[in-house]
Amino acid sequence: MSTVDTISEETVNMPPVNLSPMDRVRLARDPQRPGTLDYIAELFSNFVELHGDRTFGDDGALIGGLATFRNRSVLVLGHQGGSNTRENLARNFGMPRPEGFRKARRLMCHAEKFRLPIIAFIDTSGADPGIGSEERGQGTAIAECLLQMVGLRVPIICVVIGEGGSGGALAISLGDRLLMLENAVYAVASPEACAAILWKDSSFASEAAETMRVTAADLQRFGIIDELIAEPVPAHEAPRETIGAVGQRIAAHLETLLDTFDISDPESVEALLRERYDKFRAIGAWHEG
């Protein structure tokens, strides 16, 4: 754990960058910002994409497959939007439909069966809010993902690389570690949606982003993320460096998890699950009396 702690300390002590929360929202959404497929191309080899939920369809907005990461086979999951209109239409702007979540859940079960660690990249404005998605149980599909993931008997590392949008992001982020790039954001609702509801005007998104505390630094302060990964230059201006830094941190955490927990030993897996439970059980702000 020593390397993890050292890096975190350094990150915390970095000179403050003068970016507003809304600036970071814009950086997180930049169409040129590296997405899941860029991370897969750079950090993994032997990637075999696995499609379909075996029930209704395939979803280009939430992709997954088997790949080699530092000499080890893993399952990769991640949201994927497009960098142009054609891609965005094909990938529904990175907003998964129920099929995407059901595919993710299917692949999680696959990883558990073959004892493969999971690495998940979070980058979505949220789950698709469409008629068809409601018809096919969007809420249920997300909930089933959560239930599967929280009790999954393999180590899971999740990284917020862009926009973490509400339930659609949460659905693949219940891991043993939650890492987050400095210019990524993670929010319960988009600043625009929050502004539309509470300000009655979505043009107050900046104000909403400010008070919603959506930045990695805020979430680190709250203890909701495990590590902030420094991003001294915005990811789309330094894609290889950013992806490389993320890869290093994933590798360090994966090594720690695999050193601590033996996936083939049921008792050790129980300890992993207890730790995961305690991690989520502890999140909340309340007082008693």
Binding site: A143, L146, L147, V150, G151, S166, G167, L170, L174, Y186, A187, V188, A189, C194, I197, L198, M212, R213, V214, L219, F222, I224, R276, Y277, F280, R281, I283, G284, A285
Partner: peptide, 23 residues
Amino acid sequence: GARMHEGLFSLMQMAKTVAAFDR
């Protein structure tokens, strides 16, 4: 829906409650 005023703490209650029901 989630309580927007509590930001990501609210979202994480989905994880917390599902985890407890898993047990």
